[in-house]
Design a binder for these strands. Structure first.
Length: 278
DNA sequence: CTTTAAGCCTGCAGGC
DNA sequence: TGCCTGCAGGCTTAAA
């Protein structure tokens, strides 16, 4: 559920309390996440100074002095909670860090779809999990033309294509649905037919949706909260996601508009307005 | 090459 | 109250 805006928010929270600080203690309490955590993770973290952060798609990279980066993915239910050093242990706390100034960072992930790995900072992007990722949607270089190139030859739906991290990195179910609604494109449209002005419009709406969501601290749904415990509030700005049966704001007074509909594509829920989205 | 399905995992909501 | 079932979905792997 953490998608690009949630990961960006979490990363900024980590940055605020970790950047420039030394990790005085690191504890790994459970190593069987999505994959087995790397041997020596706690040892590598203990005593290291955090020099910087970067996000790539839904992945966070925390750079340590000495040339190692920690690659973190929150999976479906991963959370970071920041507190003080004497805080109580919460359920599903798989890794904890304590800084030189008494900040305690807990990685919590009930479903354990998340992952943590170590990667040399030089060549971070060659890591197996990052190597195949598509362009960053908020980069200047992510244009309608580039997206249309990515979609060329794809016979699957635009919904499935945008959810594919090799096409564009960082979108998940919620933001794909919202961006397609804003761009008035049907999620059922064949991906390779999204070209020209339509692709340009879609890129514009993807960027705007993500930027607004980041500004709102992400969307809080079930597990997700910001590292300081605050709720994100972009879920109040959703126009279609989880709004099945409600009227479509874009079809005011149109009698043939039956409102927001939920369909299943590739086993996932899609929400859209069949009248307005083409 | 692209596309599809299964499996991983736990918490929660809804039905009875 | 409590049990059962289905759903949530990012990602990889294997198969078509």
């Amino acid at each position: 559920m953490p998608e690009l805006p949630e990961v960006e928010t979490v990363m900024r929270g980590l940055q605020a309390c970790l950047q420039g600080h030394v990790i005085r203690h690191a504890g790994v309490h459970r190593a069987d996440l999505r994959w087995k955590l790397p041997r020596g993770l706690a040892a590598r973290l203990t005593g290291a100074r955090v020099t910087g952060f970067r996000r790539r798609g839904k992945y966070m990279l925390m750079r340590l002095d000495g040339g190692t980066s920690v690659l973190i993915h929150l999976g479906m239910s991963g959370r970071i909670v920041i507190g003080r050093a004497n805080a109580e242990t919460a359920p599903h706390e798989h890794m904890t860090l304590e800084t030189d100034d008494g900040c305690r960072i807990a990685f919590i992930d009930p479903r354990r779809f998340g992952s943590i790995d170590l990667v040399p900072t030089e060549g971070e992007d060659s890591h197996k999990l990052l190597a195949g990722l598509g362009p960053e949607p908020l980069d200047r270089g992510f244009t309608g033309r580039l997206l249309a190139d990515e979609l060329a030859g794809r016979k699957t739906s635009i919904k499935a294509a945008l959810s594919d991290q090799r096409v564009v990195a960082g979108l998940g179910n919620i933001y794909v649905c919202e961006a397609l609604y804003r761009a008035a494109i049907s999620p059922r449209r064949i991906a390779r037919t999204v070209v020209g002005e339509r692709a340009g419009r879609l890129v514009e709406e993807i960027k705007k949706t993500l930027q607004e969501a980041i500004a709102a601290g992400g969307s809080s749904l079930r597990d997700y909260v910001q590292p300081d415990g605050e709720l994100g509030y972009f879920q109040h700005a959703w126009k279609v996601y989880d709004h099945a049966g409600e009227p479509c704001e874009r079809c005011p007074g149109a009698p043939e508009c039956r409102g927001i509909r939920r369909i299943v594509q590739g086993g996932r829920s899609t929400f859209y307005c069949p009248r307005m989205q083409r």
